[in-house]
Design a binder for these strands. Structure first.
Lengths: 249, 249
DNA sequence: GGTTTTTGCGTGTAGTTGCGGGATTTCGCG
DNA sequence: CGCGAAATCCCGCAACTACACGCAAAAACC
């Protein structure tokens, strides 16, 4: 029996019965438990089932969960997220933008953390909601279907009313000369407001976006307090930013 | 029975009856009391139930997972959703609450519909976002993790500023004498505001919730314009509502 | 024919469950 | 109101199961 075939069989079974047991499957298909486990792992990675101890459940089990679709260069983003999380302390007010890096960070937040997270990004909010001790504030307004984030004057006005301790920006392009740039006008307006409102601005960016430029300017480098990439801080690529007085992690 | 599966079962039971007893559960599922207690502990840690001596209470309705129940009631909800959709017209401003019935309706919206949907319910918003021609307005504020909806004075203030053509309420309990009642104080405040703001109030409820009462009052029957259940309008169960001048679909 | 993928196995690790014993809460009754 | 019995809870333990990881054989692929 081929791998694909097997996985299709499992999937069908899961969708029919809402659950499968690894032990039953392996005797049924006549392969080792490891193989079944690997199959379930694969299916879980694709978001088609939810793996649990002893088997798997239908992914429709969890009503609200965005497809954990293959995040682009996820390992790197996990490194970034880990560094970013080290900046968090209990009791903080945290403002975040959208983007997959932010979502990755949201997923990795320690369960013990007690803080308030503010965002207009739907995927990020979904992750925050799963956390047991985090207060979640949703910034409302019209939803931009492309970026899955609330945009508009209402959202900007709301952000101006708050004074978060720290602000995490998922970044599309950053350059020592041009600062942060982006390609969606409405999102840029929002990010500007976020930067102005916050006591401390942290910029999350994978290395391949460093030294790139997008058409619309968000802010100059002097607004950035901390820059986080997956590279070690002393990497030559990041040298120019340290020279500008930005703390590099 | 898998651990998660068991917990889902317990959760469903809690949401249905508003309470569970450890002793009953353990004989029902055939595991030791310790296991049940650990499950309740886990669920309580995630904020999904409130643990008390001897069992657990509903921490308002929390609908992560209910495949067995959902499978049964989904057809009913689809009937309701279909009737509700017949009330929609292009260009309308539509305000909706949360709840699985509303989500079902969101999934079934005709692709050709062009309208503006306003809601604070995260699951509903996710569905609206997938629709090609719908404008989505998100009402922001603190998120209630239990009901997955934004609650608080900001959200209420925002709703008071708008004047939607029609408002769809997912209903937990409706009774000819007591009107609409619910069990989450904050959600009730929000629903009150929604009812006041809207030109027309449509109440969606599956028949098993008709003639039931929850602790907190939302509104009297005279605020309701239309009542939709999965039953035919002339069903005797719905007679009292017609007599009160409510249009029954 | 060499390379990649897939599979099964062994080993050590982690998760889950039921049980016993002692602390705590609840509740009826004098 | 206080007391004692019963139920319930909490904690640590041990048995059992399931899991991850690395490795080598087998299969499939090119």
């Amino acid at each position: 029996m081929l791998k694909k075939e097997r996985q299709a069989y499992i999937l069908q079974k899961v969708n029919l019965h809402n659950k499968v047991l690894s032990s039953l499957l392996c005797s049924e298909i006549n392969v080792s438990e490891d193989t079944i486990r690997r199959d379930l792992q694969d299916l879980a990675d694709e978001g088609k089932v939810i793996k649990v101890h002893g088997g798997a459940l239908s992914s429709s089990f969890y009503e609200v969960s965005l497809p954990p679709a293959a995040v682009y260069s996820q390992p790197k983003k996990k490194i970034i997220a880990k560094k970013a999380i080290s900046l968090l302390e209990n009791g903080m007010f945290v403002l975040t933008s959208g983007g997959t890096t932010i979502v990755e960070m949201a997923r990795m937040l320690p369960l013990s953390l007690r803080a308030t997270f503010i965002s207009g990004s739907i995927p990020a909010i979904l992750e925050y909601m799963h956390h047991p001790h985090i207060e979640v504030i949703l910034v409302g307004d019209k939803i931009s279907k492309n970026s899955k984030i609330t945009v508009g004057s209402e959202a900007i006005a709301k952000i101006k009313q708050i004074k978060p301790d720290i602000c995490f920006l998922g970044t599309n392009a950053i350059d020592p000369e041009q600062g942060i740039t982006d390609n969606d006008w409405e999102v840029v307006q929002l990010k500007k407001a976020m930067i102005e409102a916050s006591r401390k601005v942290v910029c999350l960016s994978i290395a391949e976006k460093v030294n790139t430029i997008q058409p619309i300017k968000v802010c100059d480098t002097n607004k950035i307090d901390i820059l986080i990439t997956e590279l070690p801080p002393e990497s030559p690529l990041l040298e120019p930013f340290s020279a500008l007085g930005i703390k590099v992690l």
